[in-house]
């Protein structure tokens, strides 16, 4: 983890349970706030951690009581590094279709992995795809101009 001075870290294996996963997420998100993260930076980390952990518990381990999810989380005021590993068969993230396409935009699944990619500075899948490393830099210039179309084009008009 190089020279970064982490102000909060957690490394733990947790059961494949959504209520337990959310308890750890609550603690993580509080630590993120305490480290000064807010606004879009905070929201993006919240989204990615939520989606990755829920995917690991439900899709990866299929909520099996015999399987665990390994979480490794690092927070500094300027950087977040998250590693989440499940005991499932993995998947090929590059093979997932674009959830924004005409034929998929109204489907009731398939957005989580795409949102992680869009909201993180770096994402890397390891092994068979059952392990993900997500890095988010605070004030990352990549996320500076989200709104090139402006709000007015977005809202429905009569």
């Amino acid at each position: 983890m190089t020279e970064t001075s982490w102000t909060w870290t957690l490394h733990k294996k947790i059961p494949s349970s959504l209520p337990v996963a959310h308890q750890y997420l609550e603690t993580f998100l509080q630590a993120l706030k305490d480290a000064g993260w807010d606004g879009r930076d905070y929201f993006h980390v919240q989204m990615a951690s939520e989606e990755a952990l829920v995917n690991a518990v439900t899709h990866g381990n299929k909520e099996s009581p015999d399987k665990q999810v390994e979480i490794e989380l690092y927070i500094s005021p300027d950087l977040v590094n998250m590693r989440i590993k499940d005991e499932g068969a993995g998947f090929k993230p590059e093979s997932l279709p674009d959830p924004r396409s005409e034929e998929r935009v109204d489907m009731v699944h398939g957005r989580g992995v795409w949102l992680i990619k869009e909201m993180m500075s770096e994402v890397q899948y390891l092994g068979s795809g059952n392990e993900v490393i997500m890095i988010r830099r605070r004030h990352d210039p990549r996320f500076d101009e989200p709104d090139e179309d402006g709000d007015d084009d977005f809202f429905t008009e009569d």
Binding site: M47, R100, V105, W114, L115, P146, D147, F154, F155, T156
Partner: peptide, 16 residues
């Protein structure tokens, strides 16, 4: 709202 925009959910929702 940004997440809705990213996902192009304005194509299926009426958002005011």
């Amino acid at each position: 709202l940004e997440a809705f925009k990213m996902l192009r959910l304005n194509k299926i929702f009426d958002i005011r």
